[in-house]
Computed example of a mutant assay.
Amino acid sequence: MTASPLLSRHGAVNDSGADAGVALHYGDPVAEQRALAAGRAVSDQSHLGIVTVTGPDRLTWLDSLSTQAIGTLAPGFSSETMILSPQGRIEHVAGVVDDGETTWLITETAPALATFLDRMKFMRRVEVADATADFAAIGEAVSAPAAAGEPPTWVDPWPGVAAGGTTYAADPDAPHPGADRAWRLVLVPRTTLEAEIDSRLDAGWSLVGTWATEAARIAAHRPRASHEVDDTTLPHELDWLRTAVHLHKGCYRGQETVAKVHNVGRPPRRFTMLHLDGSAHTLPALGAPVMNGEKTVGRITSVARHHEEGPIALAMLKRSVDPTLELMVPSDGGPLSASQELIVNADGFSSDRPDKPGPTMRGLMMGKGCAADGGDMT
């Protein structure tokens, strides 16, 4: 990805890893986080990928391939969906918004997603394009959809539980830490990126980097594909059935595994928030092991220094780890103690897990017969 022109702004520090090419901060990370929390901030998110799908069959076709029910998505409404492997592992995640003519997919795997979709067209009246070179995303601390005449805008549905979804939260009735986080991505021509951001700065907003946006995301328990997903990740492990999976929409690739884990199984790992020792001056690296004594029980997937909560991290742990344990995470400055805050509950059951099925119903509830998984529909 080409470096953003915003990196030439005063104080800009280039980020690294999945966020390379945009600014980590512009000189004052704490002030930037406060501006974002106050709803008067704009962020350069031009490193994200954008895939477009056009043609009269676009929504029903995408619906048949992915985890969310988007076949009748109305113009201007936002959703989130996944492409799974036949074994139910997460391969692609995309924010979805349609403008009546084009379906816009915001993703961190644009080239691979566009290639996959192009291979799956068959006789459908659709056209797929990786539009990342032509369009860029601008992040705003706003929860409103686009008004008439505004560019395509994706409003983050997290942490709501969409129709057909469910939650693996430890206490589904408790207020969610992400409930007050407003976030949307406005898609603009890449040639107008700086002008669009400057118009917001002229209105009194602040320009903030990924330090601020990532700290807010982590505090909201919001998973991110480039950070939390590995080759074996199931949507259940990340509480991602909230926004990205419809349990009753019918067949799609990986559907059998989704149904089986939800109805009669349990995810092997659980997504967890960690509050790290604030007396240290270092943070653990992404991928750092999470330790219970001498035993590795998980790994750090995201980490940030939050302006109010201090050093925080997201981690993927073995489901069997006692949630009351204080864990340890190595860092360059020495081991850091880490207390757990449950995101996905320790028993591995969703809030609407069905009663134990009988032998006749078990096969139906496990999704047997889904052609997308190679099953026999007869």
Rank of each mutant, 00 (worst) to 15 (best):
Leu105Ile: 11
Val42Arg: 07
Val303Asp: 05
Thr132Ser: 15
Met82His: 07
Gly76Glu: 10
Ser16Met: 10
Ala133Ser: 13
Leu274Thr: 04
Arg270Pro: 08
Gln255Ala: 12
His92Trp: 01
Gly11Ala: 03
Lys295Trp: 11
Ala216Val: 06
Ile312Leu: 09
Arg190Lys: 14
Pro223Cys: 05
Glu127Tyr: 06
Leu48Tyr: 07
Pro86Ser: 07
Val229Phe: 05
Thr60Asp: 13
Ala220Ile: 00
Ala20Gly: 14
Leu24Tyr: 06
Pro159Ile: 02
Thr72Pro: 01
Thr213Leu: 03
Val13Gly: 04
Arg224Leu: 14
Ile197Gly: 02
Glu256Tyr: 01
Ile343Leu: 09
Gly160Gln: 13
Val42Asp: 00
Leu73Thr: 03
Gly76Val: 01
Ala144Gly: 00
Ser16Trp: 08
Ala74Thr: 12
Ala288Lys: 01
Asp230Ser: 14
Leu59Met: 03
Leu207Met: 03
Ala133Thr: 14
Arg124Asn: 15
Thr296Ala: 14
Leu117Trp: 09
Pro189Cys: 07
Pro29Gly: 15
Ala129Tyr: 02
Ala338Phe: 02
Ala372Gln: 15
Ala313Gly: 04
Ala174Glu: 12
Asn345Arg: 13
Asp63Val: 02
Gly164Arg: 10
Arg124Gly: 08
Pro284Met: 00
Gly49Lys: 02
Gly164Pro: 10
Leu286Pro: 00
Leu327Thr: 13
Leu327Asp: 05
Ile50Gln: 00
Gly369Met: 09
Met377Ser: 15
Leu193Ala: 00
Gly310Glu: 11
Leu276Gln: 11
Ala136Glu: 01
Gly165Trp: 02
Ala69His: 11
Pro330Arg: 07
Ala219Leu: 12
Gly204Leu: 02
Ile83Ala: 05
Arg266Phe: 12
Ile312Phe: 13
Arg217Phe: 01
Met291Cys: 08
Thr52Glu: 11
Thr166Glu: 12
Trp205Gln: 12
Leu286Lys: 08
Asp202Cys: 07
Ser339Arg: 15
Thr109Gly: 02
Val303Phe: 01
Leu314Gln: 07
Ala179Asn: 06
Leu207Pro: 10
Pro357Thr: 09
Ala131Val: 09
Val329Met: 01
Ala146Gln: 08
Ala220Met: 10
Ala371Gly: 05
Arg119Asn: 05
Leu286Asp: 03
Gly298Pro: 15
